[in-house]
Design a protein around this nucleic acid. Structure first.
Length: 155
DNA sequence: GCCAACGTTGGC
DNA sequence: GCCAACGTTGGC
């Protein structure tokens, strides 16, 4: 089983929005980056766990954990002219963009802030993709050791 | 609002 | 294939 980190802007869709969804489940749509797409389409497997990261907000950080409950399948918002993520180059016969379904597994009592994560970036969290300089990828892998360490921070 | 860093596009 | 221009991300 693999571990991941998925970013979302809480102003658009935060962990509390996910909690309100039927079955606490949603489609992770709108990803328009090839590397992130590949992670969803080729890397993520049913049962994998991912940190739910809040970005572009007052308190950036990890808010909880989601589980991958459906593996990569075409992101239909790319075919919808009225959708902000519409992409004319994505052919329904040969979809360019993919999404997965995630289910809320756990919300942390408090967010593990980016500032807290940074305190450990030289040691325990060395190499964590999220902390790499200039990182903008909305989906990144998390190593098992890093995962465990961050989980401990949540206790 | 600013700006650094990055991915993508398109001219050549 | 190179690279400048552009748009976007995301922390501060």
């Amino acid at each position: 089983m693999a571990y991941w980190l998925m970013k979302s802007e809480p102003d658009v869709f935060g962990i509390d929005d996910l909690a309100k969804r039927p079955g606490k489940t949603t489609h992770w749509d709108g990803v328009r980056n090839f590397q992130a797409r590949n992670f969803m389409r080729d890397g993520m497997r049913r049962g994998d766990l991912a940190f739910f990261y809040h970005s572009s907000c007052d308190e950036p950080g990890i808010a909880g954990i989601v589980k991958i409950v459906k593996e990569g399948y075409p992101d239909r918002t790319a075919f919808d002219k009225d959708d902000p993520h519409f992409d004319a180059d994505s052919d329904p016969e040969k979809p360019r963009w993919y999404m997965v379904d995630v289910k809320l597994e756990r919300k942390f009592r408090r967010t593990i802030t980016l500032a807290t994560l940074r305190e450990h970036e030289q040691r325990a969290l060395k190499g964590l993709a999220l902390l790499k300089r200039g990182n903008r990828l909305s989906i990144t892998p998390v190593g098992a050791a890093h995962w465990k360490f961050i989980l401990d921070l949540a206790e």
